[in-house]
Design a protein around this nucleic acid. Structure first.
Lengths: 341, 341
DNA sequence: AACAGAAATGCAATCGATTGCATTGATTAA
DNA sequence: TTAATCAATGCAATCGATTGCATTTCTGTT
């Protein structure tokens, strides 16, 4: 399609009767070039509509100034907050950010990782998908020493910086809160245990229950992919169990939502009959009736931190001696789904 | 950072004692290469962990097989649906997609456009930001014949394919629906008129009112950026006007939400006292109490269509003779905010 | 056995920017 | 005036893959 001739530094050089090297240096504000020529060159560049060909530069310098980001779904408030945090830091440091979503699908995640690698991103920030249990596509990066930072859904096996929230603590707090409301039989809708975050949330939940000297009913701990539909099936199953629980701690807000909607329809009162707490503080959680008590995660700050660590690592010549796992604090937000007015 | 030697086609060639050209051709399944050598080469490539350097290839071929996407906010359900639609088509056709958000900020939009251009994306799909009133950063593309497709928030001045929804019709339908509910005084919370979509929504609203022989109260047509906060200010302002309206057509769901929350707090009943219709069918619209009647836009399909048109244009040698503007149908979804049970 | 024609492979230039090293020109010191 | 010094610029190789054209190797035919 492109017919208008591409303007290159050579075109500028020819027009100004100087060498391409000088043009290149001038445009990069290299101090070797005199003020006068630099001005002349920049002026010409603008007049001629010069646009650097990043690929040529990248090929030569072996750097792209681009950070790749892979998230399961850009559509989740938590993830888009993280992305905004990443962009915030990256743009200020002159990095471009390219965002991709895996849709929680391993194959797509792998394809994206390979594409990003082939495009030679300088570093990768990611949160793995629910299906992801093999990590060849990620070893690609760590083996070649391309900086990698995980956030939220991390992988233990791969050495890298990791940014997580205190899932255990958050879940503990959430469950404790339900118990403080006088609940004795707390059920749990949890995520796939291959993801650490869900294992930890469940562990926090279990600890809170046993610390309070209460019993766990193993029939009332369910695992699924935490979609709207999964949540609906889960709440139905829970309602069919022998001793109906008086509270549910859900591993995300989506399933909390499903539960609430179903209970509303069934005429079971939330929180009077069954109290509910979710996780993530999705925007909708304050909009439903009753509004959902939940655990707030500092998404934006996690993104900032992840980008900082990554960029620091990109800038350094050597592999970091040790990798940090940064745990950020969560906050319990009490709303109407767990507390009577 | 990268110390492990990069494997190039030359390394493969050396090892197999053949030429790099043959390796290149074999890896691209060029029929010139015999079955036997091709196999040998592919095997070696895998064993050696070869990963093509896309930048080098792109530099040579002047194609990147990458589509750039710019949206105001990835966080909006409508936009992320469109993105999913784009990805759906693009991936199947072997294109990568790089997504960026402008945050409705002209400067950022312009920076992103320049970055994408410098990275030589093969084409661009975008929806402009609220601030965008100058188009130099977009002319960059059209002038150099880099295919460009607009969706939703389009720019008339620039020749390109455009995918829109029937904003006029949707708004007309929404307003008409309010009138059918017996409402006589319908206010409007609208967006910035420099964006065609909002101008059209307002026009549709006006037409429906006058077609019904009703009066418009110009004090009750407000314009703002349609954020939560803007919506709150707008509803407050509307409540202070002389003749309180009995319905409001909001140009998006966000402001409809603000209005509903504020009216709930004030004890003004929705829909009994004031009926409300929004626009876009954001997921939260069915979750609030009362649930929000709204206009549904086919986001996924718009994305698919945009990607199809773009890729077709990328593949063609010549400029399209005429540019299409495809208008997709909207659907009124009646919920509780506009209809008494 | 010889040769046309096809099939397979190689050569070398190219894409556009960068950069180590060489060169030019100007300035300064002696 | 001349050599030494420094500032400014140019030369040419390089990054890795692609591709038009040339060359080599087969294959089959007579």
């Amino acid at each position: 399609m492109a017919q208008k001739p591409e303007i290159t530094i050579h075109d500028i050089a020819k027009k100004l009767k100087i060498s391409a090297s000088t043009v290149s240096r001038a445009l990069k504000d290299n101090p070797l070039i005199s003020e006068a020529t630099r001005h002349k060159i920049k002026k010409a560049a603008i007049e001629m509509g010069y646009r650097p060909n990043v690929m040529a530069a990248n090929l030569r310098t072996r750097r792209t100034n681009t950070i790749g980001v892979i998230v399961p779904l850009i559509n989740r408030h938590f993830f888009s907050s993280v992305i905004s945090g990443i962009e915030d830091v990256a743009y200020n440091q002159g990095f471009a950010v390219t965002i991709s979503q895996s849709n929680d699908n391993l194959e797509k995640e792998s394809t994206i990782a390979h594409t990003l690698f082939s495009n030679r991103v300088d570093g990768l920030i990611l949160s793995i998908g629910m299906e992801t249990q093999s990590y060849d596509h990620l070893k690609l990066f760590s083996e070649r020493n391309i900086p990698l930072v995980f956030f939220d859904r991390i992988v233990d096996e791969i050495p890298a910086h990791k940014i997580v929230v205190d899932d255990f603590g958050g879940a503990y707090r959430a469950t404790q809160h339900l118990i403080e409301q006088g609940r004795k039989k707390v059920a749990h809708i949890g995520g796939p245990l291959n993801l650490q975050i869900y294992a930890k949330r469940e562990a926090g939940y279990r600890k809170a229950i046993s610390d309070a000297g209460l019993q766990i009913n193993e029939n009332q701990i369910l695992h699924n992919s935490l979609t709207r539909e999964d949540g609906l099936n889960a709440i139905k199953k829970i309602l069919k169990t022998k001793e109906r629980p008086d509270a549910i701690f859900c591993a995300n807000d989506t399933t909390a939502l499903s539960a609430i909607i179903h209970l509303n329809e069934k005429g079971i009162k939330v929180p009077e009959d069954i109290a509910i707490v979710g996780f993530s503080n999705e925007p909708f959680s304050e909009l439903v009736t009753p509004s959902i008590s939940t655990i707030k995660q500092p998404g934006f700050e996690m993104g900032q931190k992840a980008a900082e660590l990554l960029i620091k690592q990109i800038g350094s010549k050597t592999k970091p001696k040790n990798y940090e796992t940064i745990m950020m604090e969560t906050e319990l937000i009490v709303r109407n789904s767990s507390q009577q007015k």
